[in-house]
Amino acid sequence: MSARASLTTEHTIDRAGRGVSRVYGLRSQAPLVLRPTHPKSAEPFTRHATNVARVSLTSGAAGPLGGDHFELEVRVGRGSTLVLNEVSATLLLPGARGGLSQMRITITVEDDATLVWLPEPVIAAEHCNHVQDIDVALGTSSRLLMRDELQLGRHREPPGNLTQRIRVRRVGRPLFQQQLTVGPATPKWRSSAVGGGHKSLGTVLVVDPDWGGDPPSARILAHGAAMFPLAGPAVLISALADDTLTTRRLLDRGVAHLGDPWASEAAAAPSA
């Protein structure tokens, strides 16, 4: 199955003369369903603004399964703010006829725009064979908070093969790039230098131009978790644990060290 979904936001002025972010291009194709939702209160990580755009990604079917090709394209227009979350975790499954499943996510955050992207964990079930590509293009004054969590196999299950590539560029220059390959085709994933047999891992990447050349300093969060200032106005929080709840807790602990506005808003944010 192939599916493409996309959405665009823009900054505009409402009838009351207030600046608001509005979703103006929203295209869903089953099973990728994008649903605008209305914030009940201030959104996390958006400087307490209530006038942000909020969209939830819902999957209308199981999977992706082997053979599925999904694409999601997100453009956060100049000056607008989007909170993009997900209704449930993604379970990667093998297809009836095997084959690769693919998810390609392309994100553009224009100048003065903010994207808070909080997907739920991706779970690599046994025998899955999945490639996920995430490409993010930022402007000089774009802000980003992006969470990513992987669980390797369901309860007491070994994972299938999963390759994840994340590429974040800022004004065309590289900011963060990494590829993770796990599963039976890459046994060295379990090496003490790479994943050490942990069942769950995650990252939070935060880009804040206000940090300039001086992002928050490196910090150890646990045996298997740390936060790293990148070579740019950005911080990566990285955690490995044996279950997704611990990973989420370690990532949250990292966010709490980011200083204003990220830390204070994290405290107010719902955890899912």
């Binding site: 790039q177 590829q179 993770l180 790479v194 298997g224 978790a225 740390a226 990285s238 490995l240």
Partner: peptide, 10 residues
Amino acid sequence: PADASPLLDI
């Protein structure tokens, strides 16, 4: 290539 070694970084 960009193969990550998260435990080495930590």
